[in-house]
Design a protein around this nucleic acid. Structure first.
Lengths: 344, 344
DNA sequence: CTGAAAGCGCTTACAG
DNA sequence: CTGAAAGCGCTTACAG
C-alpha cells in the first residue's frame, strides 16, 4: 500500500502514508490528489470521490513541513500577547485556539511583556516560520515591527482595539468609551472626587484614562492630581497599596476607578482590612470583570469586556483573510457592558 | 548574493537567503555549511569560522520547514495541559516557553480540558507536526494515547508528578506528601474535624485527598463523611458554595482543606459574608499559593508549589533528551512549601 | 574532514 | 480537467 520509494536502496522514507500512496490507490497522479484534497481548482467529481476514499482508507494526513516548504506558507498562526499573567489575554488565547484548530491552523504564541523590542525580536523569529496569519495586540508598536509586518505580506488582525483605517483589520471595542461610561456611572452615583488608578500604563489603560478625563472635564470636576499612574505591573497587592496611598494623600477622594479588576479586588480587600466602608466612604470600580470580582465583599462594579468573543471573531476574520475571502467589516466593535454591583 | 536558482526560468525561490547562498560566499559546499552551523560532526575550525561569518553577513536563518522535512523532526515541542483557566498551568506554560525559546524550540500548546479523548485527538493531530519533544501533564491517560506516545518515539517529560519508573521522565513533586503535610499542620493547630473539599477531581486532587486521608486515619480522626468531592471545575464561587454546604450539613467541622486556592479564596470571602470567624470557627486551607491568596482576609494558609520551576526544569530535561544528552535524574522532585498564614 | 547525489513530501508553473 | 517535471531548502546516506 505504501510508496514504492520505501524499498529503494537509499530510502529515507518515514513510514508515513504519502500523497503518492493515495495516488497509486486512487489511480490518479499525485497532483490530482493534492488538488482534490485541498479543493483547489476544479477536479472531476468522480475523481474527487475516489481520492477521498483512498485517502480515508490509508489514513492519509498531509505533511505540514512538506506543504509549508512547497507552498511557502505554514498552517501556523502567530499570536502576540503582552502577558499571560493577566487572565484577560489567557481568555483571548483560549478562544483563538478554539477557533483556529477546526480551521486547520496551529497557534504559535509569543509573549511580549509590553516591550516593543521584545515584540520586534519575537516577530522576526516567528516570521521565519512563514506563518499563514498574524494576530497582534493593539496598534502600538515600533517602526521596525510595523515594517516587518507590512513587508512580510502575512495577513494580520489586531486584537482589543478597533480602527477604521483603510486596510487595517481589528476586533475589539472602544476602551475610551468604556472608561467614559464607568466615569458617568460614578458621577450618577453622586461621587465628586473620582480618582483614576492605573498600572502598567499600556495603551488600553491610557485610553480608559482618556475616557475618564474627558468626562470629568465635562463635569468640571477634573483635577490632574486625581490621576494615579504606576508603571508597575497590575496586581492585587498593588491595588491595595494604591488605595491606601490615594486616601492618605487625598482624603476627599470619594471614588476610585481602577484600570483593571485585579487592582480593584486588591483595593476592596485592603478596604476590608482598614475598615473603610465601600461604597459609602469610597466607591471602587474595576475593569474587565475578571474571575472573582462577583465574589468580592462588596461585589465589584466593573466593565465586562468580550475577550473570548474577540478571540473568536479575530481568528475567524484572520482565516477569512488567509483564504482571500471578502471580509465584510474590517473593524469589528464588539462593545462592552457596564456591570453595576455593590462596590459603587 | 543570493542563490543562482533565483534567476532560472522556472524559479520559485522565496527571496530567502539559503544555505546555498552562504556556501557560495564561504566557498564551501552547502552540506559543509549545514554541518558547521549545526555543530554536527567535526568541521575544520577555519571553515567553521568562514561559514559563520558568511551566514552572519547574509543574515541567514535556516528554514524550519525544509529542516523538518529533511530531518524528519521539527523544532517544535508539543505541550499538553488540562486547562488555561487554572493559573497554575499558565505559570507552567510561561516557564516552558521561556526555556524553550533560547534553545531554538517553539511551543505547540494543546488544552485537554481534563478529557482523555480530547487529549488523544490533540496528540494525534499534533504528532503529525513531527515534534521534537513532548510535555504532558501527569501520568493518567488512555491506552491509545499511551501507545501513540510510545510508538512515536518522541522524547517525553511528564509535568507535575514524579515517577521512579524506568525510562519515564518527570518533573514535579509529591502531591500526596503535600496533602499529608497540610493535614498535619491542621492537626497541630488542634483541629479535629478536618474536611477535605475537592473539585475537578483530577489525579493530583485525588493524590492530595489520599495524603489527607492517610493522616486522618493515622490520627484516628478519619470519617468518609468528611470527604466533599465535586466534579465541577474549581472556582471561587464553588468554594463559597462548598463552605456553606459543609458547615450546614456538618456544623462540627472545624477546618476545611480545599484542593485549590481558588476554592479556598471563595470560601474565605463567603465566610466574611456569613460572618464566620476564620480560623476560630473554621480554619481554611488551600493549595498552590495562587495570586491573591496572601491578600485575603484573613490571609490564606496554603502549599506553595514550584510551578515555574517545574516548567523550566522539564523544558531543560526535554531539550537534553532531544539532544541525546545524558539525564542525571529522570524523576526530579522539586518539593513544595507549606505557607502558614492567618486562615489556620 | 569534505562533498556530490539523492531524497524528504508536498505544490507551483507550465503544457496540453 | 489532468499530468510530467521541477522545485521548495534543507539533511541523510554513501564515498572518499
Amino acid at each position: 500500500m505504501s510508496s514504492t520509494k520505501k524499498s529503494s536502496p537509499r530510502s529515507r522514507a518515514t513510514g508515513r502514508v504519502t500523497l503518492a500512496d493515495v495516488a497509486q490507490l486512487a489511480q490518479v497522479s499525485p497532483i490530482t490528489v493534492s488538488r482534490a484534497l485541498r479543493g483547489e481548482r476544479a477536479v472531476d467529481a468522480l475523481l474527487v470521490a475516489r481520492v477521498q476514499a483512498a485517502a480515508k482508507e490509508l489514513g492519509y494526513v498531509p505533511d505540514p513541513a512538506a506543504r509549508a516548504l512547497a507552498s511557502r506558507h505554514s498552517a501556523q498562526v502567530v499570536v502576540l500577547v503582552p502577558l499571560l499573567s493577566n487572565a484577560l489575554f489567557v481568555d483571548v488565547l483560549e478562544a483563538v485556539q478554539r477557533s483556529l484548530r477546526p480551521a486547520g491552523y496551529q497557534m504559535l504564541m509569543g509573549v511580549t511583556h509590553y516591550d516593543a523590542n521584545e515584540e520586534e525580536h519575537l516577530l522576526r523569529e516567528l516570521l521565519q516560520h512563514r506563518p499563514a496569519g498574524l494576530l497582534v495586540t493593539g496598534f502600538e508598536r515600533n517602526e521596525a515591527t510595523r515594517q516587518m509586518m507590512a513587508t512580510s505580506g502575512v495577513p494580520c488582525v489586531h486584537l482589543m482595539e478597533v480602527s477604521n483605517t483603510e486596510g487595517v483589520y481589528s476586533v475589539g471595542f472602544s476602551q475610551t468609551d468604556a472608561g467614559a461610561e464607568m466615569t458617568r456611572h460614578l458621577l450618577a452615583r453622586g461621587k465628586r472626587r473620582i480618582a483614576f488608578a492605573g498600572a502598567q500604563l499600556d495603551p488600553r489603560t491610557r485610553q480608559r484614562l482618556a475616557g475618564w478625563r474627558t468626562e470629568l472635564q465635562q463635569a468640571q470636576l477634573y483635577d490632574p492630581q486625581l490621576e494615579w499612574l504606576n508603571p508597575a505591573p497590575s496586581s492585587m497587592a498593588l491595588g491595595g497599596e494604591m488605595l491606601t496611598q490615594i486616601l492618605q494623600t487625598q482624603p476627599e477622594v470619594d471614588a476610585i476607578f481602577f484600570c483593571n479588576d485585579d487592582l480593584a479586588q486588591g483595593a476592596l480587600l485592603a478596604a476590608l482590612r482598614l475598615g473603610l466602608a465601600v461604597p459609602e466612604r469610597v466607591a471602587i470600580a474595576g475593569f474587565n470583570d475578571l474571575t472573582g470580582s462577583d465574589q468580592m465583599l462588596p461585589a465589584l462594579t466593573t466593565v465586562h469586556t468580550p475577550r473570548s468573543e474577540i478571540g473568536t471573531a479575530a481568528a475567524n476574520m484572520l482565516v477569512a483573510l488567509i483564504n482571500r475571502e471578502p471580509v465584510a467589516c474590517p473593524g469589528v466593535d464588539l462593545g462592552y457592558r457596564l456591570v453595576v454591583r455593590a462596590s459603587t
